[in-house]
């Protein structure tokens, strides 16, 4: 990853809620933990020394349990929450130095947000909701009208323009939320647990809509979630937060193959490894063709297993997207890959 690809840079970001946050900041920098801080200063540690580089046109997922600071982090990016200390650079511009007026400009043009509870304007129609970001920029009505209509039809809500949000189902409301965020043509999309309030089927449908849109629009998306399956499905990179600190930030395959600590292992222990681990994570590098079939390097183990079961003794050849041979996989690799990492232990006794 070259340096130019990084769009958002978060450096040593701290957030402490409560009075005397400056005093508390020194204590935190000296290594005081969340519980002790609460006891001593009556301050809540929101974010603890967060460093994060977010690449252009990628989906960066931020994961963590409730209270881990992920929603706090995303709100720092557009300064809905002011940090206690630290630096946030977007396009090499320090957004913490923006004046109130510049900040308003910045929010109008560079970032838009999708919310967990939709946060649509109940007194506005679908059309007015989607056009809101444009209307407050004083863009003439007939112009934002057409642009908003385009996005409404893009998320599949044709014919609902004059409805009020209260008349729509949850999934449809979030489509409106998504269209509203996309309508401003902002480069950066912040999604705060955007699909968490939806039922599983609709959620998966919305994930597909998002991926579909992303393949065409190439936005930089920061996606907050507490659902690992969702993170693995859409994330190009996953950062895991715990109690306000960053535990691991790496590509999804690495999170599964090499969890940084027990907390991360705990997170990943219930996932179906065969369905998410890809060939490239477990293959043995090799340039020569093996005796078995040839598959792409992003094929998941489950599918490889299907192929190999026909001829278990023949290793399969792995090739990258351009068709170059990069490695091979034998049956034993598959078994190794599906096994949980060491740190989690096993239940076998005797």
């Amino acid at each position: 990853m070259s340096k130019n690809d990084i769009l958002i840079k978060v450096n040593q970001l701290y957030k402490i809620f409560g009075d005397n946050s400056n005093e508390a900041l020194d204590l935190v920098k000296d290594g005081m933990g969340k519980d002790e801080l609460l006891e001593k200063c009556n301050c809540v540690l929101g974010l603890n020394n967060i460093n994060l580089d977010i690449s252009k046109a990628k989906i960066q997922v931020v994961m963590g349990l409730s209270g881990s600071g992920k929603s706090t982090l995303i709100r720092h990016l557009n300064r809905l929450i002011e940090p206690t200390s630290g630096e946030i650079l977007v396009n090499e511009q320090d957004i913490l130095s923006l004046s109130q007026k510049e900040l308003v400009q910045f929010r109008q043009n560079n970032m838009s947000m999708v919310f967990q509870k939709f946060a649509l304007f109940p007194h506005k129609t679908v059309l007015q909701n989607v056009g809101y970001g444009l209307a407050i920029q004083n863009i003439p009505v007939d112009e934002w009208d057409t642009r908003a209509k385009k996005w409404i039809s893009r998320v599949g809500l044709d014919g609902y323009e004059t409805y009020y949000p209260g008349q729509l189902s949850g999934g449809m409301q979030q489509r409106v939320g998504l269209a509203r965020a996309l309508a401003t043509d902002a480069e950066i999309l912040l999604m705060d647990e955007a699909f968490s309030a939806l039922d599983p089927l609709i959620r998966s449908e919305m994930q597909n809509i998002l991926l579909d849109l992303q393949s065409e629009l190439h936005k930089t998306i920061i996606f907050i979630t507490h659902d690992l399956d969702e993170a693995l499905k859409i994330g190009d990179r996953i950062a895991i937060l715990r109690d306000g600190s960053m535990v691991q930030d790496s590509d999804p395959q690495k999170i599964i193959m090499k969890p940084a600590d027990d907390y991360v292992s705990d997170f990943i222990k219930d996932i179906n490894r065969a369905r998410v681990i890809q060939a490239k994570s477990i293959m043995t590098p090799s340039k020569s063709k093996s005796s078995g079939a040839t598959v792409k390097e992003d094929m998941v183990l489950e599918d490889i297993l299907q192929i190999m079961s026909d001829a278990p003794s023949k290793p399969v050849t792995i090739e990258d997207t351009k068709g170059n041979i990069t490695g091979k996989i034998e049956m034993v690799n598959l078994i190794e890959g599906m096994k949980r990492p060491e740190s989690q232990g096993t239940n076998i006794t005797g």
Binding site: N78, R107, S112, M113, L120, Y132, I136
Partner: peptide, 20 residues
């Protein structure tokens, strides 16, 4: 939440007051 949404789209005080 709704106010936060208006904020995130860069509404100023008067736009929030009269629009939302």
């Amino acid at each position: 939440d709704v106010l936060e949404a208006a904020d995130s789209f860069g509404a100023n005080y008067w736009q929030k007051l009269f629009g939302v």
